[in-house]
Design a protein around this nucleic acid. Structure first.
Lengths: 233, 233
DNA sequence: GGTTGACATTTTGCATTCATTTTTTGAAAG
DNA sequence: CTTTCAAAAAATGAATGCAAAATGTCAACC
């Protein structure tokens, strides 16, 4: 679920799907399947969502499908036009900028909360992943680096110990997952080094449990990521 | 919509309902009506949501009602138990604490973003409301004070110029609106004075466009409100 | 050749219906 | 009098049906 929203590499492929997920109801399962279907880009941006075709695709009638569409619309993944059906929501550059900022704010909050309640064991785990990430950085192993980076942001959100925060964050992450970010950091070695230094600062602030400082660093860190992504877009 | 989540006074009564709202579709109207119905506390905490009764209440069949319920469940207002219907979601003290923190984080973000883009006119408006609030404070006019307080927080979120942030904030506010906070500040004059001083600091930081500083102040300000609310609960 | 307007087709939104599950009721047993 | 079990009643989840709206088609007209 909680997937750090940048640092995504194209080769990662689709998410593991609902393999080990204990689906409580059929509806829940359909919702997850449909969400993945859209998030994975099976429908073009701004395209009509064909009810009938999807009913056949998922072997269900229109009623549960339409219920699922309403939920996805509430999540912001699609939009419902009265009497004109559902369309895959098209994110304008402005929408994306907004989403990035809100997620940055939530990560900043996660860092602040993490400082209040993180255990020594949790910190040690983050520290270890950080060092692992550094080794990847030295070896110029982009894939390994990204993996660790994701893990660290993930661990910080988890360390915040706030399920509401995690869920809100995941919801926003789902909206922009359709937007594919190529690993453009590869072409910007300066940014990579800068990001690495920022991560050092993150770990340092976390070690000192300096909440507001970490909050600042994280927000700026994500802003820099956003700028880097935009610059190479 | 965007209602600052504390500083709510009981005598405010229900929201003006969907009077001047240009309902695009019937479904949208139903959703709003049903949400208000639940938010306004017509259903007991944790109570079953009676489909049949609501269908009669709103003069619709079960299909659109169930669609609306799915959306409300996604919003976190109710929860759907498989084969056991919908229940009004009961917020544990922990849930409320989490919600407060996330909203605090979002307000902190709003302050930071507002510093980046607020216009002089917008700042002047906030400043005026602040002075008005101060006069209410001096006169010990709790109602007027709260009104201004709400307006200020509202204006800061608006000044952030981020619709995604505003929508996310409003969504969380809706979840917590069922929980009634009495104006317990009335019994804690010290907290009132402290809050007023915090608001002075907020205005000062905003005037200096000191984003990260304002972010800090706002988060702490909301944390203090939360603590005050808990202490007198 | 391009535009307009009427007709057919498709699609949407909602109501109704049906099968399955849950909850309630009531009676019998301990 | 309480507990247990079974049948009745109600509610839920999903499929189908139907009216209204939108979309597409095609021929008449400018």
């Amino acid at each position: 679920m909680n997937e750090p929203f940048l640092d995504t590499i194209d080769e990662q492929g689709p998410v593991p799907a609902e393999a080990a997920k204990p689906v409580a109801s059929l509806h829940e399962g359909l919702l997850v399947a449909l969400r993945d279907f859209i998030v994975e880009g099976n429908l073009a941006d701004g395209a009509r969502v064909p009810e009938r075709a999807l009913c056949e695709r998922f072997n269900i009638s229109r009623t549960p499908l339409r219920e699922a569409l309403k939920v996805l619309a509430a999540e912001g993944l699609i939009e419902l036009l009265p009497n004109r059906g559902a369309r895959v929501r098209q994110l304008s550059p402005e929408d994306i900028r907004e989403l990035f900022d809100v997620m940055g704010g939530l990560e900043a909050l996660a860092g602040r909360l993490a400082c209040e309640r993180i255990s020594e064991a949790e910190f040690t785990e983050i520290e270890q992943v950080h060092h692992e990430m550094y080794r990847f950085y030295l070896r110029r192993d982009m894939h390994g680096y990204f993996h660790c980076n994701q893990a660290i942001h993930q661990l910080i959100v988890a360390a915040a110990g706030n399920a509401t925060l995690a869920a809100t964050y995941a919801g926003l992450a789902g909206r922009i997952r359709r937007v594919r970010y190529s690993a453009n950091l590869a072409k910007d070695r300066d940014r990579w080094g800068e990001a690495m230094r920022e991560h050092e600062a993150i770990l340092d602030a976390l070690r000192r449990r300096a909440g507001s400082e970490l909050s600042d660093i994280l927000f700026v860190h994500l802003r820099n990521k956003q700028k880097a992504a935009q610059a190479s877009a």
